[in-house]
Nucleic acid binder design. Structure first.
Lengths: 132, 132
DNA sequence: ACACTTTTTTAGAATCATTATAAACTACAA
DNA sequence: TTGTAGTTTATAATGATTCTAAAAAAGTGT
């Protein structure tokens, strides 16, 4: 399996559940956005076994911590994740309540001039809200 | 009272509760961030009467709809609001779970090159996550 | 002032995403 | 194979937010 090594290398045991979630999340060229519940539905559809909701949460958080997923900072009732972990930004269509990717090349370089003592920058994310 | 007109003009009846919340939120030079619970505490401290939590929620949402408050797009267990409704950016200290303002001058100009048909840009917000 | 309608407030209940629990199970190394 | 540390699981608990429906207040006309 192609994800066994990936998981081992990050100190995560390659369990059947994690491998299956890897397939759903990463076995595609296109990156995408999802909520936990959308992911659960996708897993149910794609395979025939069911993974406990708690495991889906655990796995998504583990993957996020390892840098395989990113949370998208947006105020919504559900948390959105992104399989695209490269630096990039989002449009948020307020009317349609939809997220649209902005490639890094779509946004000029962002220069953060202020520094906070003892802290480093983990990420810089731009949210562009769209209206009609 | 200075907020009676403001409320009337936006079609909100100037009730005692709304006026009191206006005092807490807007009767200061400095803008600030808050969660609903922080606001409730502040109200309790500032005056002696207690406003029902449901009313605080209702009022904050009403004010947001009228453009007197802004939600800060961030993934946190509680929703953050900002009395600064102008375009500006934020640091988010992941460990302390604290928001810090970034003046516009702390961030170079941001150029959004991509366009979406029929949509205009309402706001451009940068969230800079900080870690130790 | 009074009567009447509409809006607002309120306490408490309901909802719903997420996290915690603790027992059963699994991977893996000695 | 046996031990143990890590993982999964169903279910319970948590906690922010929203709903409900009755009481209170505000606005309007008389």
């Amino acid at each position: 399996m192609k994800y066994v090594e990936k998981l081992r290398n990050s100190g995560l045991r390659p369990t059947k559940q994690r491998l299956q979630i890897c397939e759903v999340l990463f076995n595609t060229d296109k990156t995408f956005h999802f909520t936990i519940n959308e992911l659960e539905q996708k897993i149910k559809k794609q395979a025939n076994n069911k993974i406990s909701l708690a495991t889906v949460y655990n796995t998504v958080h583990a993957f996020e911590k390892k840098g395989y997923l990113k949370q998208i900072p947006i105020n919504s009732s559900e948390t959105y994740f992104d399989t695209n972990v490269t630096d990039h930004h989002h449009f948020y269509d307020l009317k349609e309540e939809k997220l649209i990717d902005l490639e890094n090349s779509d946004v000029g370089p962002i220069n953060i001039l202020k520094k906070i003592n003892g802290k480093k920058i983990k990420s810089v994310e731009v949210l562009v809200k769209l209206e009609d």
